[in-house]
Amino acid sequence: MPLGLIALALGAFGIGLTEFVIMGLLPEVAADFAVSEAAAGWLISGYALSVVVGALGLTAATVRLPRKPVLAGLLVLFIIGNTLTAVAATYEVAMLGRVIAALCHGAFFGIGSVVAADLVPANKKAGAIAIMFTGLTAANVLGVPFGTFLGQQAGWRSTFWAISGIGVIALIGILALVPVLKQAAEAISLRSELGAFKSRQVWLSLGVTVLGYGGMFGAFTYIAYTLTEVSGFNSHTVPWLLVLFGAGLFAGNWLGGRMADKNIDRTLLIFIGALLVVLIAFGALATSQVATIVALFLMGGFGFGTVPGLQSRIMRYAGSAPTLASGANIGAFNVGNALGAWAGGMGIAAGLGYTSPIWIGAAITVAALLLMLLAMNLAKKAPVVAELTPAN
């Protein structure tokens, strides 16, 4: 395994920790800045929206530049953002720090996916992307519980100082371990990168990403309410149940990467279909604690198991101009997060109960499955070579 993949995974770990750990520290943050919990929640929403902006804007702005120094520069931005959050004297400064850190998120994963794929032979590209995304899953399994514990014991700012330190280590790793890869002229042309969006399959892939991820997050965003109000778990057990969900993410990412290296579309169809089955079973059996535990693990596994395949698919159809399309797909994941959270919240607000987000997530997943079937059918009629031709 190329050592550069380890450096990319470490960067992914820090970025994933930045995104998710604040969820467990919102009470402390709200109390420190004397703001409502809803206002503190905007530190999460603001981050997600900034990810989409950075995924497109920063990727497009840096597409002509060599990828290794761009990745290093993005990590410097990440360190600055988290340091600013750690020292923030006001809520507004903390929000600014979150926005700055978020801007590097989409571009890092988008460009990092291309670099990871270039480090290995063609038949191992999805697996290499999965290794990089292992850092993100590890952030959920290990980083978030320990980061939350650190913040509760030593103050929430200590967590962000620790994240800044992880960013420094990842930066050193990128500089030392990621080789300078040769880029074709087309790969550093913004015009050719934009030309990738002429591919119908690129747009279909983005749609599957939004809907597939939206289905999982429609169920997951409000999972704490489902666990306590429907399944009957004590609130103190929720963090450990979320670790179980994170373990599912880890397993699904590994398995999805291995399977996608053999057949991307078939793997996506299997995982999206399996996610749909799990969500339907979860919605029907949420009052059973045993069924809920199993469903949590499987929901994380099948939901996140699509990530290596989705990222590989869009890069495949973007052809020799994959960087911007790859970044756009990272933005699509976050659009899916927002869609699922909004739709699930609408179900609760309508008085449909705390299992309604699961059923709504299942409905969104049905749409993802149908769109995937359409994409596969159209792909059979049009050869990949035609999709790979960049704009001149």
Rank of each mutant, 00 (worst) to 15 (best):
I166K: 04
A30F: 10
Q153L: 14
M95K: 04
V180K: 15
A321E: 02
I348R: 04
G16S: 11
L150E: 03
G135H: 06
R157L: 08
A196M: 08
P2E: 08
S320P: 09
I360W: 00
A295N: 11
V53D: 02
V294H: 06
G167K: 04
G252F: 13
S312Q: 07
V141Y: 05
L378H: 15
G246R: 02
G143D: 01
A338M: 15
L58Q: 06
A12I: 11
P66A: 10
R258D: 08
A116R: 06
V63S: 06
V76R: 08
I280E: 06
I44S: 04
S205I: 08
A291T: 03
I270E: 06
T83D: 03
V307G: 04
G256N: 07
L227N: 00
Q201E: 13
L171A: 07
L49S: 09
T306V: 14
Y213M: 13
V307N: 10
Q153P: 10
G347C: 05
L119G: 02
G147I: 00
L374R: 14
G11Q: 05
M23G: 13
G252M: 11
W342A: 12
N334H: 13
G283F: 00
M376G: 05
Q152M: 12
K381Y: 11
F78C: 01
Q183N: 13
Q183W: 13
R157M: 10
L373N: 02
R157K: 13
G353P: 01
L206W: 01
R98M: 09
L43D: 01
L298T: 03
S113Q: 06
M315I: 10
V238N: 02
T85G: 13
P179G: 09
Q152P: 08
V210C: 04
V63E: 00
F304W: 12
L194T: 10
A332G: 01
A391G: 10
A321M: 06
K182W: 13
T148E: 07
L241K: 01
A325Y: 00
Y317I: 05
N392K: 15
A139Q: 06
A318K: 00
M372V: 05
V230L: 03
F245W: 13
C104V: 14
L177Q: 11
L374G: 07
F304G: 00
I348Q: 03
F217D: 01
A379G: 12
Y47D: 02
G73C: 04
G41L: 11
Y213G: 05
L49I: 15
L77Q: 09
V208G: 00
G73D: 05
M23F: 12
I44D: 02
L150Q: 05
L378W: 15
A284L: 14
N253Y: 06
D265G: 13
I348C: 01
M132S: 04
G151L: 06
A61Q: 11
S288P: 09
N253L: 07
T83F: 14
G97W: 00
K124H: 14
I44T: 09
I314Q: 04
M132A: 08
G351I: 11
T209Q: 07
A138W: 04
L352D: 09
F149K: 15
Y225L: 12
G11H: 02
N234E: 15
L5Y: 05
A184H: 14
S164I: 02
K380Q: 15
L241D: 02
A107H: 12
V29G: 00
T62L: 08
A107P: 11
V21I: 12
